[in-house]
């Protein structure tokens, strides 16, 4: 009886990934601390904060309400190489206003679809009152999916073609 159960596991697996994505809510993920700044913060200060916190994305919030997002891409597009782009300008003028958002109660599948459709790498998470909760990054999703396959992905040697002459620890 048990033998058949083991064999069926293989088929069960393919469903489970999609099911997990559907059922897992974004709030179940462990997310990095977000960087959140006021709309009146200067560009220089925002960049310094992003550098200090090693984060490529800053949420812009007035009080606790999300008004925009400032990412590496905004920096490349609107700041670097422009002479008149002073570091004193408020971040409000340079951010991307009204970004696409999700709620922490949305599923991971929603996030995957939204990111894929819009080409976003970061999605701010807000609650029903538009209060900022967190920021979901594309790498969080990839990480989560790969954690379903530790044996296949994480037990690899660091580079392809790296062979060990004898078993480790033997």
């Amino acid at each position: 009886m048990f033998l058949t159960v083991i064999d069926e596991n293989a088929g069960f697996e393919a469903v489970s990934v999609e099911l997990t994505l559907r059922q897992t809510k974004i709030r179940h993920l462990q997310l990095k601390d977000m960087v959140c700044v006021d709309p009146e913060t200067s560009l220089g200060e925002t960049i310094a904060t992003m550098q200090r916190r090693r984060n490529g994305c800053a949420l812009v919030a007035a009080g606790s309400n999300l008004v925009g997002i400032f990412t590496e891409r905004d920096l490349i597009r609107k700041v670097v190489g422009r002479d008149q782009a002073g570091l004193e300008r408020p971040i409000r003028d340079l951010m991307t206003p009204e970004p696409a958002v999700l709620s922490p109660d949305d599923s991971l599948l929603d996030a995957v679809r939204l990111m894929n459709r819009g080409g976003y790498r970061h999605i701010p998470l807000v609650d029903s009152a538009n209060r900022v909760c967190d920021c979901l990054s594309v790498i969080n999703i990839v990480d989560y999916l790969l954690e379903c396959y530790p044996q296949e992905v994480f037990s690899l040697p660091p580079t392809p073609g790296q062979n060990f002459s004898e078993p480790d620890g033997a």
Partner: peptide, 29 residues
Amino acid sequence: ERDVLYKLGGMEGSASSVKVFEVMTPHPV
């Protein structure tokens, strides 16, 4: 983009004087 943010960041008007090899990540995998 990340290299530009982290290493060049807020330096004003410096993008034309800094060379790529000073900011790039060398020897990528």
